Amino acid sequence: MTQPSQPPTDPLARIFAYRAIDLRDRFPQPLESFREALECLQSDRSYMAAMSGEIIAYLRGGYALTIPDEFFICRSGEIDATLVPLGKNDEVCKEVEAWLREMLTRPDVDTTKAVPAEERPYSLDQLLAQCDPQAPHPEELQTWQDTPDVGREILEAPTETDIWQAAERLFESRKGAERWMKSPAIALRGRTPIDVMIEDPQLVYDLIMRLEYGVYT
């Protein structure tokens, strides 16, 4: 007697969770769908997601697939990057779902033998430690810096209050700001920001702004 055929198993059933990762790892919780992970990166809580955002699909059995960021990050040039707008989420979700189905069913992609996803290999502090403060600026950034001033770009020198507020915003606490202000900085030739602030507050303020906007050179 012929046994009834089993209905095909949806390959997406192998995925049990998703994870959204930004530069400060603000979303450690597992998520049920790619859409939820994408919305985390698009939220106000995310930090520099357009520069370093990742979304990972975790598979049963301890393996994972990193979803290519070209699905949700739009890049132009060396330094310009933006997340897809919320209005395109439906389209992006369909594209990612199709990609996942293909990856999980292709015979040349054996996820059962894939290397388990490694722990995120870098943090903000590790990235800063690798930066060369003497490295030349990318051409696009240099062009922007060389553009003549228009309007009120040149403002009065920042006050100590301005600097402390900017540092607290960057490090998300007074304690974190104090630790950074009292630590030697490569970009300040090994001097501490709190010492340099007395002589050149603009230099310290500019350094904080570069760190906040992801310009490490």
Rank of each mutant, 00 (worst) to 15 (best):
L211F: 06
T9P: 03
A50D: 02
E39M: 08
L155D: 00
T105L: 06
E172S: 14
R60I: 11
M48K: 02
Y213N: 13
I79P: 01
Q165Y: 07
I208H: 01
R45I: 11
T66G: 12
A17N: 02
A114F: 13
L23H: 04
A37D: 04
E78C: 03
F34N: 01
P4G: 03
Y213S: 10
S173E: 07
S46M: 09
S123R: 14
T147Y: 05
M181D: 04
R179L: 13
P8I: 09
M181W: 05
W144Q: 15
F16A: 12
T82E: 09
R191G: 06
P107L: 01
Q134H: 02
F171I: 12
D149M: 03
D132M: 06
T217L: 03
L104I: 09
L211R: 08
L86M: 08
E168M: 14
S33R: 10
L41K: 06
E70A: 00
I55H: 06
A187K: 05
L170W: 07
L86D: 07
V115L: 13
P68C: 04
D90H: 02
A187Y: 05
Q126F: 06
K88T: 13
E153S: 12
L59F: 11
R169A: 15
R101M: 10
W144E: 15
V204C: 01
E78L: 07
F171W: 15
A157H: 07
Q165F: 04
T105W: 02
L41R: 01
L188Y: 03
I73T: 08
K182W: 05
T217V: 10
E140C: 07
R24A: 07
S43G: 12
E39Q: 15
I79Y: 05
G87E: 11
L155F: 06
T112W: 03
D162H: 12
Q145S: 05
S5F: 07
D25N: 14
I79H: 09
W99V: 13
R174V: 12
D44H: 03
P158C: 09
D80C: 04
A117L: 08
P7S: 11
P30D: 09
C93Y: 04
M103H: 12
K88R: 13
S183R: 14
D132T: 12
L207P: 01
I55K: 02
Q6G: 06
D10A: 13
V215A: 04
A177F: 07
P4C: 01
H137M: 13
V92W: 03
P193C: 11
D44F: 00
R152S: 12
Y122H: 11
A50L: 04
G214M: 09
I194N: 12
T111G: 02
I186W: 07
V150P: 06
G62S: 05
Y63K: 15
F71V: 03
E91P: 08
D146V: 08
V109K: 12
F171L: 14
D25H: 14
P193M: 08
V84G: 07
L188W: 08
Y18S: 06
